[in-house]
Amino acid sequence: MARNRTYCGDIEYMQSVTIDPLTHERIKQSDKSQRIIKKAKHPAIIDTEMWNRVQEAIVSRINHNLVSDGSKHAIVGIVVNKDIYCRKLRCGCGRRFKKI
């Protein structure tokens, strides 16, 4: 919810692109400069200034001790645990186990 631009009264176009029109296969647009942002007709729940401050807070909280091998985890901000049991084991609810 905090990353959704529609709550501040804007609409963001070109977030994904259709590769194949027959199978409707889409990929996410990684280049944010090609996205189009327009003011919507619906009222904003939060103002744009507050939404920008939330985005800055989200970026500041990303763990920057990441794997530097160019994997997808380095982009998202997910720390890959070196312990094999922490990577493989899952709780009944679906969460991963952590070492304390």
Rank of each mutant, 00 (worst) to 15 (best):
W51D: 03
R5V: 13
K32S: 14
D10E: 07
S60V: 02
R35H: 07
H73L: 11
S71W: 01
L89P: 01
G70F: 04
D69F: 01
H64Y: 14
S71A: 02
V79M: 11
R3P: 05
I36A: 04
V59N: 10
K88G: 05
A2I: 09
I19W: 07
R3D: 15
Y85M: 10
K28R: 11
R35D: 08
G70W: 02
Q15A: 12
L22F: 15
V59T: 11
K38M: 15
Y85V: 02
A40G: 09
H64C: 08
K72R: 12
R96N: 10
N52V: 05
I11K: 03
A2T: 14
A44Y: 00
D31A: 08
E56G: 10
N65L: 09
A74P: 00
G92F: 03
L89N: 06
V67L: 12
A44I: 02
G94A: 03
K98C: 11
P21L: 04
Q15K: 14
K72P: 12
A57M: 13
R5W: 04
I11F: 14
D47V: 00
D10Q: 13
K38A: 14
I62V: 09
I45K: 07
K88F: 13
K99L: 10
L22Y: 15
C93E: 02
T6F: 00
I58C: 09
H24D: 06
I75R: 09
Q15Y: 12
Q55T: 01
Q55L: 08
G92R: 07
G94I: 04
I58W: 05
I27L: 07
L89F: 07
C91D: 01
D20I: 08
K32W: 15
S68G: 02
F97Q: 03
D20P: 10
M14D: 07
K32T: 14
G9L: 00
D10M: 15
A57I: 08
A57Y: 11
C93L: 04
V80F: 02
K39D: 08
G9T: 00
M14N: 10
R53H: 07
Q34C: 09
E25F: 01
G77T: 02
Q29K: 00
Q29L: 06
W51R: 06
S16P: 00
E56C: 11
W51N: 01
K41Y: 09
M14F: 04
G70R: 01
I11D: 11
D69W: 02
I19S: 13
I45Y: 06
I84G: 03
K99C: 12
K88A: 10
K32R: 14
R61N: 10
D10V: 10
R96E: 05
P43M: 05
T23R: 12
I45A: 10
I75Q: 10
S60P: 01
A74C: 09
T6S: 15
R61T: 08
K38R: 13
I100R: 13
I100S: 13
C91F: 09
L89A: 08
Q55S: 05
D83L: 08
P43T: 05
Q55M: 05
K38I: 15
V76G: 06
C86L: 01
D31V: 05
P43K: 10
L66M: 11
S30D: 05
Q15W: 13
N63S: 07
R35M: 14
N65S: 11
K82L: 12
